[in-house]
Amino acid sequence: MMEMAKQNDSAVTEFVLEGLTDKPELQLPLFLLFLGIYGVTVMGNLGMILIITLSPKLQSPMYFFIGNLSVIDLFYSSTVTPKMLGNFLWEQNVISLPGCMTQLFFFCVFATAEFYMLTVMAYDRYIAICSPLLYSAVMSQKVCNMLVTGVHIVATFGGMPHTIFMIRLSFCGDNVIHHYLCDIIPLLKLSCSSTYINELLLILVGGFNVLATTVPIIISYAFILSNILQIPSAEGKSKAFGTCGSHLTVVGFFYGSIIFMYFKPASSSNMVQEKVASVFYSTVIPMLNPLIYSLRNKGVRNELSKAMGMRYR
């Protein structure tokens, strides 16, 4: 599908994205599939944002955080998917060096924001179930705004080191990125200068983000589980588990695919597997999140039913 572009005498100023596959017969079916996924992602997350913003019954911290997660998912998917769709339409999907670094930055920012927003949501569920009498005081609107602002600040600073040190690298040979986006690992494989600091950052920053978010989530749910087991009625236990089920499902999908992608031994590196994992956490999960919350959350389901009923009345 593509020619390997060589620029041995000068620095690389643009890259060619290889895409998901080089088989011509798969280009159109995959384009239609991911166009559908992106359409559902945009409509699902925009719908979730609108319902939570406009519905008086959904003005609680839990729904506030769900709405902010939808904002992150919407931008996260939009950073990756439109460019990927171009891979299926053009023989060579070219991206400039500045454009590649810009995509890398926002990709890192929104991935990091997803980590920390899921952690904030776990803390919210911990307060709601373990300290219900203090919930309104602890999770005030001011505190919620501060937590969301903190998520975006941490995410922005989390994306900077990878981007800054990637810009400092030299690219002066093969300019074909064997991926469908400008991700860290595929770019490092193309560098003709030392990538030691970048690899160290990947371990340190990535490891810190995983630990700094995984540990609070595990601790929160340990307390939540302990508290739920003390509830005498089966109905009470079911209701408490119901408020956490959607969040746990999202956490499992997202963390599982991220850890598989970035924290497996280098000897087991497989580009096909890496592409599948990337598709899952950057494209599929942003589509699944609003579906999971709308299908499993009674409040969202009720408001959706009202909205649909008013539309077709």
Rank of each mutant, 00 (worst) to 15 (best):
I258S: 08
F260N: 12
I259D: 00
Y281E: 01
H179T: 07
E235K: 05
S238E: 14
N175S: 11
L201N: 02
I224Y: 01
V251M: 05
I203M: 11
F254E: 00
M166P: 03
L204W: 15
I292H: 00
T195P: 06
I228T: 15
K298P: 00
Q230V: 06
M166A: 08
S278G: 15
S233K: 07
V251L: 11
A240Y: 13
G256M: 08
C244H: 05
G207A: 15
M166K: 04
P186D: 14
C182D: 04
S268C: 11
L190P: 09
I167P: 01
Y255H: 12
G207Q: 13
A266S: 10
P232A: 13
I231W: 00
I231K: 07
A212K: 01
L201G: 04
L288R: 00
F171T: 14
L229C: 14
E199H: 05
I164Q: 00
F223C: 09
D174N: 04
L202N: 15
I203W: 06
P232W: 00
H178K: 11
P232H: 13
D183C: 12
Y196C: 06
S269H: 07
S226M: 13
L248V: 12
N270M: 05
C172H: 07
Y221S: 12
G252L: 10
L187N: 11
G242M: 05
S233T: 10
A266D: 01
P286S: 14
F253S: 02
P286V: 14
S267M: 12
R168Y: 00
D183Q: 04
L202P: 07
V251F: 12
N209L: 12
Y221M: 12
V210N: 06
L229Y: 04
I217M: 15
K275N: 10
I258M: 03
G236P: 06
S269I: 04
P186H: 15
E199Q: 12
A234R: 04
V210P: 00
A277W: 14
K275C: 08
V215S: 11
N270D: 14
L187W: 07
V251P: 01
N227Q: 15
S267K: 08
I231F: 01
K237E: 05
I219L: 11
Y281M: 11
L190M: 13
I259A: 01
V279I: 15
M287S: 06
M271Y: 01
K189Q: 13
V276H: 02
P186E: 15
G236R: 02
M287N: 03
F241A: 05
A234G: 02
P290I: 09
G245Y: 06
V276D: 00
C244V: 01
I292S: 02
Y221L: 14
P290D: 02
S220F: 00
K189W: 03
I184F: 00
M261W: 10
S226G: 14
Y293D: 02
N227Y: 05
Q273K: 05
P290Q: 09
T243A: 11
C182S: 12
N209Y: 14
S257Y: 00
N289I: 09
T283K: 15
T243N: 10
L201D: 01
S246V: 03
S246P: 02
L187R: 11
S193M: 02
T214C: 08
P265G: 13
G236C: 08
G299R: 01
C182T: 02
L188R: 10
N175P: 03
P265N: 13
L200T: 14
K189E: 11
